[in-house]
Design a protein around this nucleic acid. Structure first.
Lengths: 261, 261
DNA sequence: CAGTGGTCTAGACCACGTA
DNA sequence: ACGTGGTCTAGACCACTGG
């Protein structure tokens, strides 16, 4: 580190001062976002090491030729991501942990992303049926209303991992089995102009029934991970009620929490 | 879609205009936060019904005697909470869903909050032991280093629900069993000046071992919900590695996701 | 076209932690 | 006492959406 005599200050001061940021005012990408991306990249590259102070916001804004609120907005977005911590009277520093990369939240996304990828999906059932009670309640329909039932079996490495059961409002969108198997449900919703907004999930466990065991290649009574989800679009419509079961031996939910202050 | 009717309606301009907000500039509570709270209350009371437009930000700021950025900050915080949606060229509207109240994230908090409440906790083991491999890895220690092992049994309504097993760095804090049973681990950390920052969790399932079954009052082989967590404080220190098992029949994780745009 | 949110600026004062 | 982030203001222009 620093030769001698000096406080660790000089070191932590800022590797930032040697960095040059390329801000393009002509770009459609907002300035605060450009800055945030470049800061994030610097952190990822290790140029800004954990514990490093960022230097105060006023200087930074002067140096970059931006206003302080803009710089703040960039920094704030990284704070929200958990990459930086602000402390009054101290400064802003790079969070200093082995916290893994943005594995992000949970399975709204990993189902979404995984959909087109490694995993393969087979549509087992796809028909219109009277809604079971829980599905009707979740979708806000009268009991027994017609809904689309979708049952899919998902595998990776040629091993079954999950049995996905979805209930959708009848008139929500056209479902083509082939596209469904290659593209994934959420992607199809998105391209049908449905913007997902929020979802409520319950994760639990239970023992496998005979039919589940058979389809998932487990023993009867084996522990399964269960997930129940109700999803809403940005107009508040309920677009999906789902009950999924996963082989606990081959799947787990994995997420990172940030403590909100 | 829903049954009929109220979709594209050019709805009531704003029930908001009949509301008066009490903003106290003398209060230590930031203005944007006061506004956010009162908006949230109005939504909760139903004064602002789902789908209602909020009216444009400029007018709102004039009417409240605040600057537009301040009003925006208030609105933004509710957007982040999933209560409002903004759409360019349209306006800001109350999200229109049965999305339940802020059951918030997951168990970092519910463990935290539940700690002093209804549930009771009994300390089963509390000693210093050589760290098992996974614990050492998670805590960033050499294999076999000494760590504090804490095992607790949690019950509600006089029924066991979870077996909590925590590994903590030796010098982290003083643990008093009595306080631990009445106060909860996270609260003790907080009052010892440790500020939790983030955690990484993995939720899975497996069958109960004989000893787990005995302590949780389940049958051997019953499905259990498992949770593994590594928690970090705001300096990046790892403050805890935990492996918990829950009776699936009496416990599930329950959380809400917002799709980040 | 008009109206909305999205972004940005250049200042200001305050509250808090650290020294 | 000082320096930090926390809050707030009063404007401005742009980009998108809708009729």
């Amino acid at each position: 580190m620093a030769k001698s005599g000096d406080r660790p200050r000089a070191v932590t001061e800022s590797a930032l001062s040697t960095l040059d940021f390329a801000l393009d005012r002509g770009s459609p990408v907002p300035l605060y976002h450009q800055l945030a991306q470049q800061l994030e990249a610097a952190i990822a590259r290790g140029v800004l090491a954990p514990g490093n102070l960022l230097g105060n916001e006023v200087d930074l804004s002067v140096r970059l030729g931006l206003s302080r609120p803009t710089v703040r907005q960039a920094i704030q977005s990284l704070v929200d991501k958990g990459l930086l911590v602000r402390r009054r009277g101290v400064g802003t520093q790079v969070v200093h942990s082995r916290v893994r990369r943005p594995l992000e939240l949970s399975s709204l996304y990993d189902d979404l992303e995984a959909a087109g990828q490694g995993p393969t999906t087979r549509v087992v059932r796809h028909e219109t049926v009277p809604a079971p009670a829980e599905a009707a309640a979740a979708l806000g329909l009268a009991g027994g209303s017609e809904v689309v039932l979708l049952e899919r079996l998902r595998r990776t490495h040629n091993q079954p991992v999950a049995l996905l059961c979805n209930y959708l409002p009848c008139d929500l969108l056209d479902l083509d089995d082939a596209r469904l198997e290659s593209t994934g449900l959420y992607r199809m919703m998105r391209s049908a102009g449905i913007t997902l907004h929020s979802a409520r999930q319950t994760v639990g466990a239970r023992s496998a029934t005979a039919s589940e065991a058979a389809r998932l290649d487990e023993k009867v009574g084996a522990a399964l991970l269960t997930m129940e989800r109700t999803a809403y679009d940005d107009t508040g419509r309920t677009v999906e009620y789902a009950t999924h079961v996963y082989r606990a031996s081959r799947y787990s939910f994995d997420f990172q929490l940030l403590v909100r202050s």
